[in-house]
């Protein structure tokens, strides 16, 4: 597993070179944005169960066949497995966002996930849709662009210092997209 710092070290080592000014400038950026990043991770972890349950229910609302007999969320046992998987995916995305590098997500979550889902008969289209809803919800929480209209009764705004966190929103979105392209 790597983070933003060890990623630059590993790539420098491959060239037998020291980590030079260019890489260090990028790392200074990570450091300067450190508090924002921690707030972003906090925005995901504090709202984790809301993000996950909303994504799974949203996925089912769009495809009610999932909770009818023969559907993949049909008995509670399989619905529970679905919620659990959503939480696991979101957890690894929070790790990747904290580390500033996707390797933990790739190595520990996505590697073999699609094959597992196919073997278990999990509809990967639906899984990808749930992750897409999690992406919309999580990025709205990080960027604080959520509104009472789209939050409904569960609306909640994180109370952090206002500022530009578009880079972090884009980074978090890229990890969700990584999951979507890995399972789809």
């Amino acid at each position: 597993m790597l983070d933003a710092f060890s990623r630059s070290v590993v790539s420098a080592d491959a060239k037998t070179a020291a980590v030079g000014a260019g890489d260090i400038a990028a790392l200074r950026q990570y450091v300067a944005e450190g508090n924002k990043r921690l707030d972003a991770v906090n925005a995901i972890t504090s709202n984790a169960s809301c993000i996950v349950s909303d994504a799974v229910t949203g996925m089912i609302c769009e495809n009610t066949g999932l909770i009818q007999a023969g559907g993949n969320c049909y008995p509670n046992r399989r619905m529970a497995a679905c919620l659990r998987d959503g939480e696991i995916v979101l957890r690894y995305i929070s790790y990747a966002l904290l580390a500033g590098d996707a390797s933990v997500l790739d190595d520990r979550c996505l590697n073999g996930l699609k094959e597992t889902y196919i073997a278990l008969g999990v509809p990967t289209q639906s899984a990808a849709r749930a992750v897409a809803i999690m992406k919309a919800s999580a990025t709205a929480h990080i960027g604080e662009t959520n509104t009472p209209a789209n939050g409904g009764s569960k609306f909640r705004k994180m109370e952090t210092t206002q500022g530009d966190c578009s880079a972090l929103v884009a980074e978090a979105a890229s990890y969700f997209d990584r999951v979507i392209s890995a399972v789809a």
Partner: peptide, 29 residues
Amino acid sequence: MKSVVTTIVTAADAAGRFPSQNDLEAVQG
């Protein structure tokens, strides 16, 4: 590669939990 962040993530992953406030404080340090 062992670093502060990877150590924290490994511990959180072993426990199967999201990064906690303690973890975020450690990264902040």
